Computed example of a mutant assay.
Amino acid sequence: MFGTARNNANTYATVGMETGVVAANPHKLIVMLFDGAKAAVTNAMQQMNNGETAAKGRAISQAIAIIDSGLRASLDKTAGGEIAVSLDALYEYMSNRLLMANLNNDPATLEEVSNLLSQLRDAWEAIGSPASAAPVQTISVQDPFMPRANSFVRA
């Protein structure tokens, strides 16, 4: 009647993830894509170790989809220049390696891609940390109906 505890937990996790996506800034969304791809690769490793071929294939397909349709698709090669082109090539390499890991049942290749995703995620996280961001100037907002002196705030 009410469903299993596992289904309820999955629903709760999905709602939490969707809420995180809605509330996230573009930088955080990329971090979430890295996290999702890494989680899918980790799942694929577990399924490979358990001999669950179909589940392994689904997890690898999910990782490839996140890399190709999320990370790769978000690149702006015009604005991003050489870095975006290099990332595009790296994402293509990772997708190809995941395909080969699936075909050859190779956990070492999954580990290689997992390490690449971790390094990229850590670098992306570092460039978006508050310590690396420029200081933000705050401007106080006053009630528009309250009298005030003639002064202009320039940002």
Results as ranks from 00 to 15, higher is better:
residue 1 M to L: 10
residue 2 F to R: 12
residue 4 T to C: 06
residue 6 R to L: 10
residue 7 N to L: 14
residue 7 N to Q: 14
residue 8 N to Y: 03
residue 9 A to R: 03
residue 9 A to C: 03
residue 9 A to S: 02
residue 11 T to D: 13
residue 12 Y to G: 13
residue 12 Y to C: 11
residue 12 Y to D: 15
residue 14 T to S: 14
residue 15 V to Q: 08
residue 16 G to A: 13
residue 16 G to I: 10
residue 17 M to V: 12
residue 17 M to W: 11
residue 20 G to Q: 06
residue 21 V to D: 06
residue 22 V to F: 13
residue 27 H to M: 08
residue 27 H to A: 11
residue 33 L to C: 08
residue 34 F to E: 03
residue 34 F to C: 06
residue 35 D to A: 06
residue 35 D to W: 03
residue 36 G to Y: 00
residue 36 G to M: 02
residue 38 K to Q: 12
residue 38 K to P: 03
residue 40 A to Q: 03
residue 42 T to D: 04
residue 43 N to S: 06
residue 45 M to Q: 15
residue 49 N to F: 04
residue 51 G to N: 10
residue 52 E to G: 03
residue 55 A to D: 06
residue 56 K to M: 15
residue 57 G to Q: 01
residue 58 R to Q: 14
residue 59 A to M: 03
residue 60 I to T: 00
residue 62 Q to F: 05
residue 66 I to S: 08
residue 68 D to Y: 00
residue 70 G to A: 06
residue 71 L to G: 00
residue 72 R to A: 04
residue 75 L to Y: 03
residue 76 D to H: 07
residue 78 T to P: 04
residue 79 A to L: 03
residue 79 A to R: 04
residue 82 E to R: 05
residue 82 E to A: 07
residue 86 S to K: 13
residue 88 D to R: 00
residue 88 D to E: 08
residue 90 L to G: 05
residue 91 Y to C: 06
residue 91 Y to L: 09
residue 94 M to W: 01
residue 95 S to V: 10
residue 96 N to P: 04
residue 97 R to M: 09
residue 98 L to H: 00
residue 100 M to T: 12
residue 101 A to T: 03
residue 102 N to T: 10
residue 102 N to D: 08
residue 103 L to H: 08
residue 106 D to W: 03
residue 112 E to P: 07
residue 114 S to R: 09
residue 115 N to F: 10
residue 116 L to I: 11
residue 116 L to A: 13
residue 117 L to F: 12
residue 119 Q to K: 11
residue 120 L to C: 01
residue 121 R to A: 07
residue 121 R to H: 09
residue 122 D to S: 10
residue 123 A to W: 07
residue 124 W to L: 11
residue 124 W to A: 11
residue 124 W to F: 11
residue 126 A to C: 02
residue 126 A to S: 04
residue 127 I to G: 14
residue 128 G to H: 02
residue 128 G to W: 02
residue 128 G to D: 08
residue 129 S to P: 02
residue 130 P to G: 11
residue 130 P to S: 12
residue 131 A to G: 10
residue 131 A to V: 14
residue 132 S to N: 04
residue 138 T to I: 07
residue 140 S to E: 15
residue 141 V to C: 05
residue 141 V to N: 06
residue 142 Q to C: 05
residue 143 D to G: 05
residue 146 M to C: 07
residue 146 M to G: 00
residue 146 M to I: 11
residue 150 N to C: 05
residue 152 F to R: 07
residue 152 F to S: 10
residue 153 V to C: 09
residue 154 R to G: 10
residue 155 A to M: 11
